[in-house]
Design a protein around this nucleic acid. Structure first.
Lengths: 157, 157
DNA sequence: TTCATTGCAAAGCGTTTGCAGTCAC
DNA sequence: GTGACTGCAAACGCTTTGCAATGAA
């Protein structure tokens, strides 16, 4: 994605936030827009600490409490998605922007020989998951809102 | 499963543990066997606190540190599986016995109207996931050891 | 006897909460 | 001016760690 496109997206996404806040009767605080902008500038997954440090570095001071708060709002607004990588080890939650991307799943690659250290996270999209979802919905009489699928493995030598 | 079958399974599983401990040069402590037995008596998922309270109730004293320790061993031995239910909310890790069961995935049903409270967890097994796994392996040149798939939804009224 | 394992309490760590001060409306 | 929001620090809950005591080999 080029810089121009990203800038356009950021303008758009701020508008989406504005509408959401208005609908909900929440306030237009500068923190919310700045955090949103940071998130939509990023290319990859991040956790709260990443975001906090990044904003510190850029001399934009926000407290972690506010970041947690804001993330809750963005999740509800559908502006970001939450992930829980790390199968064996307990890790902090990861997030990523979600508005312009399509839903996808993740392949978590562990460093060979270590079952703790994550080497890489690859995104993929397989249409068969949709079929499974529909089967489950009719088999159990449920409405499925979301799913999470992770594969865990190692690079073939 | 009837009582007789369960008793037989427990005898078998203890033998599996014995061999594992021997191979690894670990000790045969009574705690390990008692915890294993408790786990294999259970029908459902449990977390560390459940197990701790259950053992307290049965007047068998073990510390949580030992339970955490032992669970680590059982995971490595393939005697139990770890799960992370709770998509939005951070919850404690859940576990279940795995030796006699086939691999399966989970449908997490939230109470209608609440996106926090889990109403029910249903297990299912869909062969298509195997196909997806194989595609991923060849597409990215990886060996997949395990996966986790969760669907999150609500009961259809 | 030796050292892996246990139990206890303290520490860690990500996240949440309480509250006084601030600022969007 | 009012009350939603922010920042700070303290509290929380699950898990891990340090260490002295124990007991399997």
């Amino acid at each position: 994605m080029n810089a121009k496109q990203r800038e356009l997206n950021i303008t758009t996404i701020k508008e989406v936030l504005r509408q959401y806040l208005q609908e909900k009767g929440f306030r237009n605080t500068p923190e919310r827009y700045t955090i949103l902008e940071e998130i939509y500038m990023m290319e990859h997954h991040f956790n709260v600490d990443d975001l906090y440090l990044l904003m510190m570095q850029k001399k934009y001071h926000v407290s972690k409490a506010t970041i947690y708060n804001t993330i809750e709002i963005f999740l509800d607004a559908g502006l970001i998605r939450k992930h829980q990588f790390g199968e064996k080890t307990l890790t902090s939650s990861s997030y990523e922007k979600s508005y312009f991307d399509k839903q996808h799943d993740h392949l978590v690659i562990y460093r060979t020989g270590s079952d703790k250290e994550i080497e890489e996270i690859i995104e993929f999209c397989d249409p068969r998951i949709q079929g499974i979802k529909e089967s489950i919905e009719s088999a159990f009489g449920v409405t499925i809102d979301s799913h999470s699928l992770y594969f865990y493995g190692t690079k073939k030598n």
